[in-house]
Write a protein that binds this DNA or RNA. Structure first.
Length: 368
DNA sequence: AAGCTAGACAACCGCGTTCCG
DNA sequence: TCGGAACGCGGTTGTCTAGCT
């Protein structure tokens, strides 16, 4: 492992902090405050680098930090935000007073990720594993009969190893199973994430960059909802990737009666055995994409995508930049053809790997 | 009692961004 | 405008501890 040059040169201490060091840090910060961390260790009489001091302060010593366990509400918040924006831990932590990004990240990695896996949900995409498997098996219609299912992510694999039955935790009374978490993640959401986080009553509470993120999230999630009007997706899973171009949408769409009915009639058992997400009719998919991009452009012109907070020009600009990125993905021909060209590319990749694995049966597929 | 393992969490590392002279 | 220092972030590693064999 390569040590930072500063620590090597100055023979600075590393590793866990002692109580004495903590006391020195606290004494110094309470007297002088934070700022210029490179000067802090010297002034505080610590043989640490500034970076280490800053980390110790922000992650542990800060007086406003909570050191107790996460509440179910906090869990739910983390899951929802992770579904919406991915591993942007600092942004997620901002929504949880007294929690640091490190806290949230550690909690996710040690608890929540496992919990979701055990519930049959891929913690990366927040989709049921069965759907991912179905998607995988149906990409471009590619899969040779009788062949192995190729590379899967680690969480999916471990979940499959655990049990093929859907949501074993929920069905078998998993000891620490949290029903709220289940609701937040997999049930048909009565209150979609974009509504929960983005409505006017709440936006004041979010920093501008998060607002920008949320605006993009709103666009993407609405896109997901609207692109499946014929085959309603049971949960309104928020797409984690903002750069995803595999969605088509109309920003103004709202839940239809058909959607509501479908939600009520929804059965997880059926869903998990079903391949409901995949477009069945290529023409319909194309039409939807075309309509959506036009509709999007129209809405954009009307200024619907602008952030209402006129006091914050920077936020507006940033938001527009991000919204534009989404717009590009939606409007470009590449997007409209995503189902064919992207799949063709993926198909080619998968086939290459398939052939390679045939030639080298002992070779581990990537994704590990 | 000793060794092993997994879980929890603290700390580190590298890299991108921001700030400032 | 540029370059270096400082800062912030996300991923990864290290360490400690409890439970099990």
């Amino acid at each position: 492992m390569v040590r930072p040059p500063c620590c090597d040169k100055l023979n600075l201490k590393r590793g866990l902090w002692t109580e004495e060091e903590d006391a020195k840090m606290l004494a110094y910060v309470s007297k002088h405050g934070t700022g210029n961390w490179t000067a802090v260790p010297k002034k505080a009489g610590l043989k640490r680098c500034g970076k280490s001091c800053r980390l110790r302060w922000t992650n542990y010593l800060r007086p406003d930090l909570k050191h107790d366990g996460f509440t179910p509400q906090e869990e739910e918040m983390i899951v929802r935000l992770h579904a919406a924006i991915g591993s942007r831990w600092s942004i997620i932590a901002q929504q949880l007073p007294g929690r640091t990004d490190n806290d949230v990240k550690n909690y996710w990695n040690t608890k929540l990720r496992k919990k979701l896996s055990e519930m049959g949900i891929d913690p990366v995409t927040h989709k049921p594993f069965s759907q991912i498997l179905a998607d995988y098996g149906n990409i471009g219609g590619f899969r040779k009969p009788g062949t192995r299912v190729g590379p899967l992510n680690k969480d999916l694999k471990s979940a499959i190893m655990l049990k093929s039955e859907p949501y074993p935790a929920a069905r078998q009374g998993f000891p620490n199973f949290n029903s709220q978490l289940m609701t937040a993640t997999i049930s048909p959401q009565k209150e979609p994430i974009q509504d929960t986080l983005f409505n006017n009553n709440h936006t004041d509470n979010y920093p501008s960059d998060l607002l920008a993120e949320l605006q993009a999230i709103k666009l993407v999630t609405e896109a997901s909802n609207c692109s499946n009007i014929e085959t309603i997706p049971p949960p309104a899973f928020a797409e984690a990737s903002l750069s995803s171009s595999s969605v088509s949408y109309s920003p103004t769409c709202s839940a239809t009666a058909a959607q509501e009915k479908a939600s009520l009639d929804f059965s997880w058992h059926d869903f998990l055995l079903d391949d409901a997400f995949l477009p069945t009719d290529p023409q319909e998919q194309e039409t939807t994409a075309e309509y959506s991009s036009k509709e999007f452009a129209s809405q954009k012109q009307k200024g619907i995508l602008q952030i209402s907070d006129t006091d914050n020009e920077a936020a507006t600009q940033e938001s527009n930049t991000k919204a534009k990125a989404i717009e590009c993905a939606v409007i470009s021909n590449d997007f409209e053809a995503s189902s064919s060209s992207d799949f063709a590319f993926v198909e080619a990749m998968l086939y290459q790997e398939y052939e390679m694995l045939l030639d080298f049966p002992n070779l581990e597929p990537f994704y590990y």
